[in-house]
Simulated assay, not measured.
Amino acid sequence: MSENPDTQFWFNSRTGEVEKGPQSLAQYRVGPFATEAEAARAPEVIKERAAKWAAEEAAED
């Protein structure tokens, strides 16, 4: 992945849009991602990870 934040992609959780470079406030940005397609998939990745963590916690109880 590129180290330059201006060439990376971010998902804006407030607007639901992908941004090239850090354009919005950090609290609304998810990323960075190497490609626009990866950033666009951010909401799905977040849901998948949350479900996985919830299942792991439930298994520990």
Rank of each mutant, 00 (worst) to 15 (best):
M1F: 06
M1A: 03
S2R: 09
E3P: 00
E3A: 11
N4Y: 08
P5S: 04
T7E: 10
Q8M: 04
F9P: 06
W10M: 11
W10R: 01
W10E: 06
F11Y: 15
F11R: 02
F11S: 05
S13N: 08
S13W: 08
R14W: 01
R14M: 04
T15N: 06
T15M: 04
G16R: 05
E17A: 15
E17Q: 10
V18W: 01
V18G: 00
V18K: 05
E19R: 03
E19F: 00
K20A: 00
K20E: 13
G21L: 02
P22W: 09
P22L: 12
Q23H: 13
Q23C: 15
S24W: 06
S24R: 00
S24G: 09
L25Y: 12
Q27K: 04
Q27M: 05
R29V: 07
R29I: 13
G31T: 12
G31N: 13
F33T: 12
F33G: 11
A34T: 15
T35D: 12
T35F: 12
E36D: 14
E36C: 12
E36I: 02
A37N: 05
A37D: 13
A37Y: 10
E38L: 14
A39E: 00
A39P: 00
A39R: 02
A39D: 01
A40K: 14
A40Y: 09
R41P: 04
R41V: 01
A42H: 02
E44Q: 15
E44L: 08
I46S: 08
K47Q: 14
K47V: 15
E48A: 13
R49Q: 09
R49I: 15
R49T: 08
R49L: 13
R49N: 14
A50G: 06
A51S: 14
A51F: 05
A51E: 15
W53R: 14
E57Q: 06
E57D: 12
A58R: 10
A58I: 07
A58H: 01
A58T: 07
E60N: 13
E60H: 03
D61H: 01
D61W: 04
D61T: 06
D61K: 02
